[in-house]
Computed example of a mutant assay.
Amino acid sequence: MVTIQIQTQDHSYPVYLGEGLRYQVSKLLSKNYHNILVISDDTVAQFDYVKDVVSSLTSNETNIYTYIIPSGEASKSLEQFGNIQTFAIENQLDRHALILAVGGGVVGDIAGFVAATFMRGIDYVQVPTTILAHDSSVGGKVAINHPLGKNLIGSFHQPVAVIYDLETLHSLSLNEKRSGFAEVIKHACIADENLLHKLMNEVRSFNDLSNDILYDSIGKGISIKAKIVEQDEKEHGVRSFLNFGHTLGHALETEAGYGELTHGEGVAIGMVFAAKLSHREFGANPLPEGFVDWLYQLGYRFDIVRKLDVPTLIEQMKKDKKNSHGTIRMVLVEKIGQPSLVPIDEHVLKIELEQFQKEVVRYVKGI
């Protein structure tokens, strides 16, 4: 087991990374809780991961409650948020209760937001079961979606621990592996050129994701995020760099309809487009030769870009939380490991998106 310590301005917590940790949750908690609410989704529950976690918690002194949401981005809704709050109130949870989020990014986001707001904030622990959640489970950003945009309703609420059992990643579908791996690529792009080249050399398909590669790449991804979060917990500065690829990515997710495009697929497309703008801004292509071909080989879809209306995408991009005084600001990279937040003129954005729609034809056709 590897332990990575996360230090924010007024809070410190461990990230435990290892195998079989879902059976050791009670041992890894820093204190005892009289009431514990386990929140998960129906996909995770079918693999018995919830059962495994609950079994590790069972004692005569602890009341354990379980709430299962439907899997998928659509569950990050005001309605589902209200339902969980009602369940917690009806079961008489108090300010000293604990919420355990067992699942991927959707579960972690909504469970974390429930924890941030129930009784004005209670403890929660992230128990990630996806590659994607190596990013979302660390750093304390919790949120739900609004029909008009992704993650527009949320807060900053740090977990008291992250317990990451790598064994759960082997049950992921191909789509889930692809979605999560995009965030690993993102961390490499903004902070670790050597990691990016290693991934491009060693991962030619998702059958290549061995335990050694997962340990190394996820551990490095978490460490990269930890370093940034320590500098900027509330996203006033460098933390925005973690949103490389997300400005267009979130817009694509919203316009395609939640569930039609995975988060990672949106981010992958967004990174390629951000690199295109980086080339325009800084005069050189920051991505390694063959990067886009590698993404295509791994199965990332580009066709969705051609199907969506550019002015509508831009309106979605205007809702991005990085924007300032009505100006769209995007994370670009001068070169791998050197990100910056750059204002983008709306007219330029329209021209570049329309050109991008034409360029992705090659990857749609597989030419």
Rank of each mutant, 00 (worst) to 15 (best):
Q46D: 12
E289R: 08
Q80L: 07
H11L: 14
Y67D: 03
M317D: 05
E183G: 04
V38Y: 00
E79R: 13
I163P: 00
Q355Y: 10
L252C: 10
V125H: 09
I224T: 15
V310R: 05
E183A: 08
T327A: 11
S171R: 03
V229I: 12
A45S: 15
I110F: 01
L169N: 01
W294I: 02
D109Q: 03
Y16C: 01
T117H: 01
V114R: 03
V292H: 06
K234I: 05
S12Y: 00
I39Y: 00
E90V: 12
K318S: 05
I218A: 11
H11N: 15
T254G: 12
E167S: 12
V267D: 03
I304E: 01
I6K: 03
K365E: 14
L295S: 02
D42L: 08
G104C: 11
L287V: 09
Y23P: 00
D216Q: 13
R22T: 14
I144L: 13
N211F: 11
P288I: 10
P147E: 07
N32Q: 15
D303C: 06
D94M: 07
E315I: 07
E354H: 11
I64C: 00
L57T: 12
P288Y: 09
A284D: 15
L349H: 05
A275T: 08
V331M: 07
A251W: 06
K322T: 08
M330N: 09
E202F: 01
D109Y: 01
K365I: 09
H187W: 04
G257R: 09
V348T: 14
G18H: 05
V15L: 10
K198E: 13
L242W: 07
A251Q: 02
S71W: 11
I163M: 00
R280C: 13
Y363N: 06
F356R: 04
K365G: 12
L37Q: 00
L169T: 10
I218L: 15
H11Q: 14
